[in-house]
Design a protein around this nucleic acid. Structure first.
Lengths: 209, 209
DNA sequence: GTTTCCGCCAAACGCGCGTTTGGGTGAAAC
DNA sequence: GTTTCACCCAAACGCGCGTTTGGCGGAAAC
């Protein structure tokens, strides 16, 4: 039913001249951290550069502009999210069980990669429509996946048939993404217990009976 | 159990010199609209003034600065929210029923006053800690109200006893506030039906059995 | 040894922002 | 008629932003 996710990577250059520092991954991570802390508009390139120990102008050897940096942060966030859900993409079995597994994985991702989650949730607003489209469609296809599982769960008799699958999917995703607003890893609750609560409160309300 | 909410109003001036336009309510509403559309940092005072048909400098006859404008928007948002929940504050009966009523009222508020909701959710970040404190404590006391109701519902046997009341309250509020991200009033769904979904998905997962 | 070029610095640019100042207008108050 | 004052305009200020440009050092490539 679900197509296997294919990772497209750009082909590495034929002969790499040098094996320098290559701070590119560090740059994306630092940008994601700052975007999560202060928001996209609240973060200046000077902030990013300062945390990297260089000047803001130097960033332009890696990026073509601030919005370009955001795009790469979002792509990294999406890739990590896809990886977190990749193992579940091709499993079979009752829709309810798959839904539970996906909810748990989503909750775990939000908790462990909260830095990247924050950007993904806040960011569409700050990109021009054509640059945001790839993320909008990715989000939409994910929502449709959930929506289909809910409808199948209803057909299989495990979920309440009176709920609108689309609305239920939007509610569920909104709830899962809202976790990043208050979950602080390594606090009072373990991630395991948070996932239990997420399954109970996210799916429990959809169950039949 | 719950104290009656008291509305504190500043005493009106003894003798009002004039009955001019008094565009203050309009200013707060317009600012709330723009903050909801483009975010606080993405909205300039020129945007606000332009929609009001004046110049940005003229705004300083009403406000002392941009953050001051945000504070008044948040106060208005809080007041409207309190009013929406005031009727429910002193009712008695099983905790489960009160919880359902509050969830429905909260969902209705988010749907109908989405412009003010957006600022309240996004805004704490952009205020200095001392100016944000009044809203943080208001939010906290509201969360404690929900938390207490959940604990009482567990004691009365209507809600699952294995859930942490605090975590459940955070999940519930996160879910309710996430509605503003996708609910568009006067679309396919009626507000009534959205509230039904909110009750089902927000509380259903906490029920015993 | 010479060349190449990545990674970064240093300095400047234009722009829009929030904010301030001073003044003008017209209706209400007396 | 004079005064008062709420309301708004017009213009400027300093500042930090994103972005551009030119150049330097030093390791890798040949």
């Amino acid at each position: 039913m679900t197509a296997v996710v294919v990772q497209l990577k750009t082909a590495p250059p034929a002969t790499r001249r040098r094996s320098g520092p290559d701070r590119w991954p560090e740059i994306v991570t630092v940008a994601a951290e700052l975007f999560a802390e202060k928001g996209y508009e609240g973060t200046s390139l000077r902030d990013v550069a300062e945390r990297l120990g260089m000047l803001k102008g130097s960033l332009y050897h890696y990026i073509s502009g601030k919005s370009d940096l955001l795009v790469h942060v979002l792509r990294e966030a999406h890739e990590r999210g896809v990886n977190a859900l990749a193992a579940l993409a091709q499993e079979d079995g009752p829709a309810l069980l798959r839904l539970e597994a996906i909810v748990a994985a989503h909750a775990r991702y939000v908790c462990t990669e909260s830095v990247f989650t924050a950007s993904f949730i806040e960011a569409h607003r700050h990109l021009a429509p054509d640059r945001a489209q790839e993320f909008v469609t990715a989000e939409r296809s994910y929502r449709l996946l959930i929506e289909g599982l809910i409808a199948r769960g209803q057909a299989e008799g495990d979920l309440r048939p009176d709920l609108d699958p689309k609305v239920a999917a939007l509610c569920l995703l909104g709830f899962l993404n809202s976790l990043h607003g208050w979950v602080r890893p390594a606090r009072r609750l373990s991630i395991r217990r948070i996932c239990d609560h997420a399954i109970a409160m996210g799916i429990g309300g959809m169950r039949a009976q």
